[in-house]
């Protein structure tokens, strides 16, 4: 999987991270590492562009979960392997409302279905228009 990063100045500075390829248990840690790197470099508004992501397993949900925690300024759970998957369900169940600093752009219908089936669509605002997505960060 490839991760392309760009900075876009809208009302606020937004980091757009485009995930290209397949996001699975072999690659989800790469996404977390890049988000962590971006946060440490000053990113406070993150738009994940999923338009070129043609496969995402539940490991991708772990990446989204961790990315959301990072963008809230929280530390990552000290959990590896299977425990991280359990932490995700707890996160979705206890989370109310959309994340303010992490939003999703253009998941393909199959990835979107996974987000729906796992409750993540209630956690992350999903946009199909890049301009509107960028403008939504205040």
């Amino acid at each position: 999987m490839e991760i392309l990063v760009e900075q876009v100045q809208d009302q606020v500075l937004v980091t757009v991270m485009k995930l290209v390829g397949e996001l699975d248990a072999s690659s989800y840690r790469d996404v977390i590492a890049r988000v962590q790197q971006a946060y440490q470099a000053g990113t406070r508004h993150l738009l994940l562009d999923l338009s070129a992501l043609y496969f995402m397993s539940s490991a991708g949900l772990v990446a989204l979960h961790n990315a959301a925690l990072l963008m809230r300024g929280q530390s990552l759970p000290d959990e590896e392997g299977w425990n991280a998957f359990h932490a995700v369900s707890n996160f979705v169940e206890n989370n109310a409302g959309f994340e303010k600093n992490l939003k999703l752009l253009n998941p393909n219908p199959r990835v979107q279905k996974t987000l729906q089936k796992t409750g993540f669509e209630r956690t992350f605002a999903v946009f199909d228009d890049r301009k509107a997505a960028l403008a939504s960060f205040k």
């Binding site: 949900l61 998957f85 169940e93």
Partner: peptide, 16 residues
């Protein structure tokens, strides 16, 4: 919330 059990997302998806 208080009645829910933790569970893996992966097996949840397989079932669905």
């Amino acid at each position: 919330l208080e009645m829910r059990q933790r569970g893996g997302m992966g097996i949840h998806l397989v079932r669905q």
